[in-house]
Design a protein around this nucleic acid. Structure first.
Length: 867
DNA sequence: CTTCTGGAAGGAGTA
DNA sequence: AGTACTCCTTCCAGA
């Protein structure tokens, strides 16, 4: 990143606050890749070099926020989370975070009526006076978490409520996906609060991270993307190929992003203004990757007056213009892409659910909570962890099934109205980043005699969305037997302009369900819940071991206890390795656990918890383990925590609460994992309890394994499976984890009562603390099942998370804090520590390389930009 | 005949 | 640069 930046550090700290951390590297990434989802910072002159770079990343999308965002309303529900995240937002230096210059534009309901469309819901909206706040980013702002500011105020709202605000406008457009600059996004009025509250902090931040990740992940690609000619280079690919599939085709190319971005930068304000009336920043349009554009277009229907340049991508995309059917807004030309996802314009006659459609809905990459107020959207029956997706060249491989043999079931609780709703389903990512539509997979509508659930396809952005009626008569419960998964060719997708993800080994997805509930007050509550990860490749499903559950999440350092692992593909030769990673991803310790051969089955393994390398830890230590069936055939990292043997057993409330909550919400996800669904083979351990519970219990949305982003990570990281969720990337020990771990000097030791050693409790440690909580809590997804939050970053511990954490902190370190590790090493005679550099470490190295590249890139670009 | 599946060949991409 | 693997995509065949 910016070598020249100062910001970085500062960002880091902030980030930590959020608790999201994927790792140092990630931090860096985040730092420069901020994608302000919501808030955009338009670079003004003040822009620091960073800006340029940031823009380069394309991550940033100009956000125009509606200042009026109901902040007040936000935070009502989950106030818990918000607080911390939005913490005052003071910068380290004490400067108010929100100082970014901003331009407020007040528009009077100008949404094009067409856009408003019939949806009654929008009506009011359109007419409202919208005050758009154009946030001008200062460099700081950009990175500064506080920049979220708007959000900050809004945060915790669990739900995405829109009052006057049109979803359409929503910025959402995916920050992650594409260059944020996405015109569209810009065009739309953005709420200041991003994801509404949910993610106050994180989301925005994440986004950055996300994006960065992408970049990183796609190293190669990324380079190109910087220039704006991302994949243009790859001529070879070509193609188009697939009938439909290809995004339109193609590779288009593009005028370089640089040009665009810079332009953008320079004329940010103008652009922003234009955005209001036009669809977005025209300038950007060209530069914007198809994907983004399309997305944006769609999303911002209301605002979109703009027509894309003829040549623009539009050309490439054949348009399919209006494919919008019924309720969708007619897209302008660019509509979206490609043919490939086209949805047949069929007349949709679904009487039932009211067509609530998308025009005003939040972008698919927005992180939404699973519950809000009385409403709670849950996945009652999770899909199987494997489902071989079909290519367009093959026939359907059927609907996604449930483990039980049936099909996934989703239910909305708390809805007492008699009006049917529409449940939306799309295929989302399952990596460690924030949940977003999966670029390489699409939901596929299944019909036939065996399908009992009606469904309707729609396109939203480049994502196919299956709309399923949620009927009161069915208790607002839907059996998802009408959804299959289509695999798009990697080459087709990677050629899309703006696409930064790579398809190779990026084969895990999640089914994402959304429901939008109109409220009497005119607002709309949008809820979302994501399923457990689903491995969609043929091979992986057959060979990679998958750990779905573990009977214990933590145990005293002495080890010796047996732990039951449930999952798939366990072989006689399967090994279980316990690993402790330093923040940089290096393995600080790795040992093979004894597996009870006799009790082994293909779906279960009994493993003896190995003693931790240091029997005298004063605070818990987070490690991870994985099942290995051979080279490259490893399960995803599973989380495990070693507890100090003498820890006072204090059972904290949080734990209970959490659990109860979990049970209620059924976080199907990895909840299982996190929650000891399985009884420990042995009796409960005292040690386990304590403050830990909370941590442990938290379901982690993301796979712990991949701190980094995407594809790449996938490669490195062992398994791409479900359980991952439970393990959150957040692990302190994980790469993303604590920076502090490795460097003893960094610890800020807080002596715990129980521990004589000045263990560094990371409480204050920026890096450390986040991790702790992170695993499962994600501010963004307060109650939502972990599923929804994929972030690799340790998620930011939601307020909720934090609370417990802090509360219990004194007695025991919550989630093993890494710091402890360090301390231990020093203070006690630990077991021999084996420091092993594993291939996985490559992740880190890889990241380093990438960062280096990025730095170079940025420096170049920034200089250009400024010049 | 169509749909759903499991398997696997071949080529491309990686390590 | 060459080799050994992996992974992706397309085909084939059976239910």
């Amino acid at each position: 990143m910016g070598s020249g930046h100062k910001e970085p550090e500062f960002d880091f700290s902030l980030m930590f606050e959020y608790g999201s951390r994927g790792g140092e590297m990630e931090m860096e990434k985040e730092a420069f890749s901020y994608t302000p989802n919501v808030s955009l910072s338009l670079p003004l002159g003040m822009a620091t070099p960073c800006l340029a770079s940031q823009y380069h990343n394309l991550q940033s999308s100009p956000v125009i926020s509606v200042s009026s965002c109901h902040q007040a309303s936000y935070g009502l529900h989950e106030s818990t989370m918000a607080p911390n995240y939005y913490f005052s937002g003071l910068r380290p230096n004490g400067a108010p975070p929100l100082e970014r210059p901003r331009i407020e534009i007040t528009s009077y309901g100008q949404m094009p009526e067409e856009q408003v469309e019939e949806s009654g819901t929008m009506g009011p909206v359109a007419k409202r006076v919208n005050i758009v706040t154009l946030t001008l980013p200062s460099a700081d702002g950009y990175r500064d978490p506080s920049s979220l500011s708007p959000a900050s105020s809004c945060n915790s709202e669990a739900s995405y409520e829109s009052g006057f605000y049109n979803y359409e406008n929503s910025p959402q457009n995916s920050p992650w996906q594409s260059p944020c600059v996405s015109p569209k996004g810009s065009s739309s009025l953005m709420l200041s609060c991003p994801p509404h509250g949910h993610a106050p902090g994180p989301s925005p931040r994440h986004s950055p991270s996300t994006s960065p990740n992408d970049d990183i992940g796609n190293h190669g690609k990324r380079k190109y993307s910087f220039n704006g000619t991302p994949y243009g280079h790859a001529p070879g690919m070509s193609p188009n190929h697939s009938p439909g599939a290809s995004p339109q085709g193609s590779p288009r190319l593009e005028e370089g992003w640089l040009g665009t971005t810079n332009q953008y930068t320079n004329s940010a304000i103008v652009a922003a203004i234009n955005a209001l009336s036009t669809d977005g920043f025209p300038d950007l349009v060209d530069g914007v990757p198809n994907k983004s554009r399309k997305t944006s277009v769609e999303h911002n229907p209301s605002m979109s007056l703009k027509v894309e340049p003829a040549n623009d991508d539009a050309g490439t995309e054949h348009g399919q213009e209006d494919y919008t059917n019924s309720n969708r807004m007619p897209f302008k030309k660019e509509s979206y892409c490609s043919g490939f996802l086209d949805v047949p314009p069929h007349p949709y006659s679904w009487p039932k659910p009211k067509p609530y459609l998308s025009p005003s809905l939040p972008a698919l990459d927005w992180q939404l909570p699973s519950c809000s107020g009385p409403y709670n959207l849950q996945i009652e029956v999770q899909p199987k962890s494997h489902h071989r997706a079909h290519y367009e060249t093959e026939g359907s491989r059927g609907a996604v099934k449930a483990l039980s043999g049936g099909h996934p079931v989703v239910q909305l609780y708390g809805y007492m109205e008699s009006e049917p709703l529409t449940l939306q389903l799309f295929i989302g990512t399952a990596d460690d980043r924030l949940l977003r539509p999966h670029a390489f997979y699409q939901v596929h509508r299944i019909t036939g005699k065996t399908v009992s659930t009606a469904s309707h396809e729609a396109m939203q952005s480049n994502t196919k969305v299956l709309e399923i009626p949620l009927l009161p008569e069915n208790n607002m419960r839907a059996i998802i037997d009408c959804a299959g998964i289509l695999k798009l060719r990697n080459s087709d997708i990677e050629l899309r302009k703006g696409e930064t993800d790579i398809g190779r080994k990026n084969t895990r997805v999640r089914m994402v369900f959304r429901v939008h509930i109109n409220q009497p007050n005119g607002r709309t509550v949008s809820l979302q819940v994501a399923s457990n990860p689903i491995e969609c490749s043929q091979r992986s499903a057959q060979e990679l071991p998958l750990v779905e559950k573990q009977s214990l999440d933590s145990y005293p350092a002495s080890g010796g206890k047996r732990m039951l692992l449930s999952g798939h593909n366990f072989l006689p030769e399967s090994k279980v390795m316990f690993v402790e990673k330093a923040q940089d991803g290096h393995h600080v310790w790795e040992t093979e656990a004894n597996v009870d051969k006799e009790s082994r089955k293909s779906t279960s393994l009994v493993v003896e918890i190995p003693p931790y390398r240091n029997q005298r830890i004063s605070s818990s230590v987070n490690v991870s383990f994985y099942v290995c069936n051979g080279k490259r055939k490893r399960s995803q990292y599973q989380r495990f925590t070693y507890l100090p043997c003498n820890v006072p057993m204090i059972k904290t409330e949080p734990a209970d609460d959490y659990e109860s909550r979990m049970s209620i919400h059924a976080n199907p996800y990895f909840g299982q994992q996190r929650l000891p669904t399985m009884m420990p083979l042995d009796e409960p351990e005292p040690c386990m309890v304590a403050s830990y519970a909370p941590c442990v219990s938290r379901p982690t949305p993301m796979p712990y394994s991949s701190p980094s982003s995407s594809p790449k990570l996938h490669d490195l990281s062992p398994v791409p499976f479900p359980k991952c969720l439970s393990n959150s990337p957040t692990h302190s020990t994980m790469p993303g984890g604590m920076a502090s771990m490795q460097d003893p000097s960094t610890h800020h030791g807080l002596a715990l009562p129980s521990s004589p050693d000045p263990v560094s409790l990371t409480m204050h440690h920026p890096q450390g603390s986040p991790h702790l909580g992170s695993p499962s809590y994600h501010p963004l997804y307060p109650n939502s099942s972990p599923s929804s939050s994929p972030t690799s970053h340790p998620s930011t511990p939601g307020a909720a998370a934090e609370s417990p954490y802090l509360a219990t902190f004194g007695s025991a370190q919550p989630r093993g804090s890494p710091p402890t590790l360090v301390a231990d090493d020093h203070t006690s005679p630990a077991l021999p520590v084996t420091i092993k550099q594993e291939p996985q470490e490559l992740d880190q190295m890889y990241l380093d390389d990438v960062n280096e590249i990025i730095r170079n890139d940025l420096s170049c670009t920034s200089s250009h930009g400024h010049s």
